[in-house]
Design a protein around this nucleic acid. Structure first.
Length: 558
RNA sequence: GCCCUCGUAGCUCAAUGGAUAGAGCAGGAGCCUUCUAAGCUCCCUAUAAAGGUUCGAUUCCUUUCGAGGGUACCA
């Protein structure tokens, strides 16, 4: 409807993409446009006059016959538009017939979405949980709007950290433990390394030397690397399954080993590489960025070196893809440097974008640290959520399948991580993640299940007409359903899951308000009852569709 | 110092440059012999500061203050 009005206003005023808003106040109509205010200046005319003109032509427009009920002018120059019930019925009928049609605005586009990117031999903590949930959802949003997506888990399976784990393993490793519970053992080795390194600084040098051995192809170290990597990936799989995250590629940092010399050579050939303090760097003074370290004094590579190689590989092998890096805000500088160097090398780097998001901080507002040994793991969060959901179900004396408990719990955590604007830091709190009331995942599940139950009880109504729908709440609900497609499009364009979350909450809230106030199955008019059920069926499907975009599996009963 | 985020109600967050800044939690008052009370209805409280651009600024620009992160051999 909004789109239709925008086109008409554009045709009538000559403004290209006229602003059409959904006003907060009911007395401001169903839709409003401030175009008259915008036009007043360039036409040097009174905005009220322009608004009056527009309102007359909207009401009299033959193409809007039967659609626009009225168009009122409001100071200082708004035009407030109300649509007829028939226009609403038409929109709902369309949604019923064809389902929610999200604009394929990005049809034919392709994108790589790099997300999750867990580190081998490190715990998957709540920060990774945010990344994974966010990346998976962004990938779905893009697909929903027509983009072909390649999901890429860029494993952190290389670097000095690996040297640390190997050193720790050789000194204090427990073979039994490693076999029984590989990840836990690897993580405790990593933590122990940092504890011991506080007293003995030479351990850090030893770790760097160990990584260099790995990079130079030492067989023994290589075998350990493979073993640790496999164990870490295996350990992550159940989590990915639970979150509905999947990947087309698992190529990690190690896979770039063979490309690194080429990058060094290319930088050299372009005269960008300089010696500094025994290391090799690229100076980025023009870009006003700090010096970028490309190769360490001992010749080993760095994260940035490998990122350059990765970018080059992607630009070459995926010549028509956008490249989205779903990576935390703390790495902003790294990406600025990466893109700056790539630009200097003449690579088509405008296809790449750092989709940054805020950190999950510890309860006291500081960064979570694996090194300090105390982080909350992703699985702990999900397990705790499941146990809390199970408690609530039990308290109510209910009994629902275990899969439903898991779905509600996982959905609660996902929603909590996706409803905020992604750039904000979020302090970790159980309260936030295990929020089961109000603006939450379980609220959506509850609403969905309520509708499912109601629709099931209504039996199958085959023939119906939407004409009886005339309650303002019903018409408002229809307009909300109509907003689904543009909301998803906007979310995909902005790479913001929060738009979808906010929409779903509002939809659910309106559904619940309607449900409470208006009898459905108890409606004495059979025809109106059928129309109401049809409306709610549509709401249920829309809810389900949006929930799935956020990685929440709707359950029929809560 | 410089760079990246951010600063809105007691707390956690919303608001494609639009009208009277919305929610949730917490607090207070109601609603289950009626379609799922994880629900519904009502009440209470806010844009860090100062300039600028604009018909209109929470949003854009500048400065100040405050928080978190980053700032060459971690990722």
């Amino acid at each position: 409807m909004q789109e239709l009005l925008a086109r008409a206003i554009s045709r009538l005023t000559g403004v290209e993409n006229p602003t059409v808003t959904v006003p907060d106040l009911a007395e401001h109509g169903h839709f409003a446009t401030p175009v008259a205010l915008q036009l007043a200046k360039e036409r040097k005319a009174n905005p009220m006059g322009i608004a009056a003109e527009l309102s007359v032509s909207l009401v009299g427009d033959p193409e809007l016959e039967g659609i626009v009920l009225n168009a009122e002018v409001a100071a200082p120059g708004f035009v407030n538009i109300r649509l007829t019930p028939q226009a609403h019925h038409r929109v709902l009928q369309e949604i019923i017939d064809r389902g929610q049609q999200v604009f394929q605005s990005r049809l034919g586009e392709k994108a790589i979405v790099e997300y999750s990117s867990v580190n081998v031999a490190k715990p998957i903590h709540v920060g990774h949980l945010r990344n994974t949930v966010l990346g998976a959802s962004i990938a779905r949003l893009l697909e929903a709007t027509g983009t072909e997506v390649t999901r890429w888990n860029y494993l952190g399976d290389w670097g000095t950290q690996f040297g640390k784990v190997v050193v720790a393993y050789q000194r204090w490793g427990n073979e039994e433990q490693l076999k029984a519970d590989p990840l836990t053992e690897l993580v405790s080795l990593y933590v122990r390394f940092h504890e011991e390194a506080k007293a003995d600084a030479s351990l850090e040098d030893e770790a760097r030397a160990m990584f260099l051995r790995l990079e130079q192809g030492d067989d023994e170290v290589r075998a350990l690397w493979q073993r640790f990597r496999d164990a870490s990936v295996d350990a992550a799989m159940p989590l990915y399954e639970q979150l509905g995250a999947r990947f087309d590629t698992w190529d990690g940092e190690a896979s770039l080993e063979g490309d690194l010399q080429g990058i060094i050579d290319e930088l050299s050939a372009k005269g960008l590489l300089e010696e500094s303090e025994g290391a090799r760097v690229v100076k980025l003074e023009e870009e006003k960025l700090p010096v970028a370290l490309i190769q360490k004094t001992d010749g080993a590579s760095l994260y940035l070196t490998r990122d350059l190689a990765l970018l080059k590989r992607r630009l070459t092998r995926y010549p028509d893809h956008r490249i989205l890096y779903v990576v935390a805000n703390e790495q902003a500088l790294n990406f600025q440097q990466l893109f700056a160097i790539a630009k200097r090398l003449g690579w088509p780097v405008e296809r790449a974008v750092h989709v940054k998001y805020g950190l999950v901080l510890s309860g006291d507002g500081k960064k979570l640290s694996t090194r300090e040994g105390r982080v909350v793991t992703a699985q702990e969060v999900l397990d705790e959520a499941a146990s809390r959901v199970a408690d609530i179900v039990k308290e109510r004396g209910d009994d629902i399948p275990a899969e439903s408990v898991t779905a509600i719990a996982t959905g609660a955590v996902s929603y909590a991580l996706l409803k905020d604007q992604r750039t904000s830091d979020i302090p970790f709190s159980w309260e936030r993640l295990l929020d089961f009331g109000g603006d939450s995942g379980p609220y959506l599940q509850y609403t969905y299940a309520r509708l499912a139950s109601l629709i099931e009880k209504s039996g199958n109504v085959s023939a119906f007409t939407l004409d009886p729908l005339d309650d303002p709440r019903e018409l408002e609900l229809i307009r909300t359903l109509d907003q689904y497609a543009p909301t998803v499009s906007r979310a995909a364009a902005d790479l913001q899951t929060s738009h979808v979350a906010l929409y779903l909450y509002q939809l659910a809230s309106k559904v619940n308000g309607y449900y409470q106030a208006v009898p459905i199955l108890k409606d004495e008019h059979a025809a109106r009852q059928a129309a109401r059920v049809a409306l709610l069926k549509s709401a249920q499907q829309t809810l389900a569709s949006g929930m799935q975009l956020l990685g929440i599996s709707p359950v029929e009963r809560v």
